[in-house]
Every structure is written in structure tokens, then in C-alpha cells.
Amino acid sequence: MASAPPLLELRDLSASYGHVQALKPTSLTVAEGELVTILGPNGAGKSTLLRAVTRLTPGTGQILFQGRDVSRLATHRLSELGIIMVQEGRGLFSQMTVRENLILGGYNAGGDRVLLEARLQQVFDLFPRLKERVDQLSSSMSGGEQQMLAIGRALMAGPKLLMLDEPSLGLAPRVAAEIIATLGELNCSGLGILLVEQKAPLALRLAKRVYVLSLGRVAVELPANEIGSHHDLARYYLH
């Protein structure tokens, strides 16, 4: 019997800003229900990779989602298929309330109020603090709460693959750990996650596999539990 195709498969995906090729031909896979972490220093092409997958930055190469070629689809169509990304810096609608941000997250649900309410309840169960601040402007919340809102809003879209660009950036270690632990819970419930981090010992504990990007290409791919045996990688990413 043929095995199921990966949730996400990138074949030689590359992307440029003008004449600068920020992402050289890169291939990677994320299996159904898998949590994969992408590591790398500043300028390695991590964010460009996520932007190229979501077509925010035009790229060349092939993007397969559940075996279907989605390389030519517009950003909003990818979202309809279940590819949802939380941007670096959270990308919240700053002049809207928590509730409005969350409801917009469920834009793809159409006018299905029952589905929206159910998803809203799930998000509040996961992040009770959002329920307490539901009528507050998103810009008036703390960094950690804003990150919870960004993830909650992404969950409102009913993702099959959740991609996060440095969700712990700028957060206190305790809050970052809380966010990463929540991602772990979501992954345990079967959600595929592609997590970009610069230095993330916590993320590595959750991840099954790791890709390390350097100078716009995959330098190393290995199971997350083997990173400790690579002296250079361990020194840079685990300490």
C-alpha cells in the first residue's frame, strides 16, 4: 500500500529580494502531525523560507501540500487549504480588539457562527488570558499576550499546518517556555507544526526533526535528539 504523502514537501524552493537570493534551492518535508524546527542564525533564510511557502515572497520551485502542487496559489488560497502562518512580530491588527482579531482569524469559516463559536471556545480554553482581555485593543496587551493572540488567531483558521516565525522573540524566558509548551500540546493533538527559531533549546525538546539553515540553504538535517552529539551545533543551539 502506498504511504500517505507528507503534509508539506518543498522541492528546490528558492526566493530572492531583487538580485539577492535569500533562499537557495531548498528541499524539506513535514509529515502529518510532525513538529519540525528550522534553526539558523540571522540572515540564514529562515523567514524567507516561510514567506516563500505562503507566497508572501515570490519563489521558484515546488510546494506540495498533502501531495497537491500548490506552488501557484495565492496566499489567501493557501490559507483556505489549511496552511497558516504566524508572522515574526505577530502581525496583529493593532487597532482591533482581541475578539475582532480572533473573529478575523476565522474568516475562512464564512458566516458559520457555530463553527466560529466552537473555535473561539477552544482558543479561550488554551489561552484563558485572552478571554479576560477579549474587548481590549490588541496593541494594549503585553508581548506574551500578543503572541498568545497571534497563535489563537491562527488556530481560529482551522490550520492543518501551523508555521511560526520566531514566536519566542522578545519574550521573557518564562513566557516563551509557556508558548512553546502550548505548541507542544497542539502538536500532541495532531497538528503539524513548522517552527522557526534562532536559538531554541525548548523547541528542540519538542521537535522530531531539525533543519539548520546557513547562508540560505539547508546545512544539516537531523533528528532533534541527535543535535547534542554534534559538538558545534550543540554549543550554539543548546546553551
Binding site: L56, T75, S79, F93, S94, G105, N108
Partner: peptide, 11 residues
């Protein structure tokens, strides 16, 4: 407010 974030949510 944020056209990229809007597109990422399916708008």
C-alpha cells in the same frame, strides 16, 4: 492595518 496578515488568514 496589515495586508500581509490579512492574506495569511484567507482574506
Amino acid at each position: 492595518q496589515n495586508a500581509e496578515a490579512a492574506a495569511l488568514l484567507g482574506i
